[in-house]
């Protein structure tokens, strides 16, 4: 029985450990204990998507998850998407399409889109809309986000084609 423990997990490819209290959410720990600022708490209800991360390759809302349960998992955040200076194709597509304004929700959208394309390389408009229905952008860059998904999908397909 405890309200404090050490969690050990993989964060963007690096093995890490941290002492956490029972009440601490994942987004709090990422922000305050790992100084990662790309994962952001906004609505606190798992419905805006600003705090999206991957836990064991699955997108989750880090505001609704207790850090306690990260123990033994593989966590990826927006900071872990680019390979050094080389952006992920989804990140490139977001720039190309101008798929953001203030940028606060952008990490979450990019994480969701990347996951969508990993499951479905050529999603229909309807599939994109439904998948991203749980991400909110108050600047309303939605039309450009739709463009970005298509650009990213095309990039991924052309990379796949180019492979021998």
């Amino acid at each position: 029985m405890s309200d404090i423990r050490t969690i050990r997990f993989t964060l963007n490819g690096t093995k890490v450990s941290k002492v956490v209290e029972a009440h601490e959410t994942v987004v709090d720990v990422l922000t305050r204990k790992f100084d990662l600022s790309g994962t952001r708490e906004s609505c606190r209800q798992g419905l805006c998507g600003c705090c999206t991360i991957y836990v064991d390759s699955n997108p989750v809302s880090s505001c609704l998850m207790l850090a306690w349960f990260l123990d033994g998992t593989d966590v990826r955040t927006i900071e872990g998407l680019a390979d050094g200076d080389t952006l992920d194709p989804v990140q490139e597509a977001f720039i190309e399409a101008g798929a953001f304004q203030c940028g606060f929700c952008t990490s979450g959208f990019i994480m969701m889109v990347k996951h969508l394309l990993s499951e479905n390389p050529d999603p229909s408009d309807e599939e994109i809309r439904h998948r991203l229905a749980g991400n909110l952008c108050r600047c309303s860059a939605y039309p450009e986000i739709m463009d970005a998904v298509k650009i990213a999908a095309a990039k991924a397909r052309s990379v796949a084609k180019a492979r021998p």
Partner: peptide, 21 residues
């Protein structure tokens, strides 16, 4: 032209008061 800060925004590195400590 794209926003000057576009790269920071897609990599989660944009500076907001939100995470200032």
């Amino acid at each position: 032209i794209p926003r000057l800060e576009a790269r920071d925004k897609v990599t989660g590195r944009t500076e907001y008061v939100h995470h200032l400590r």
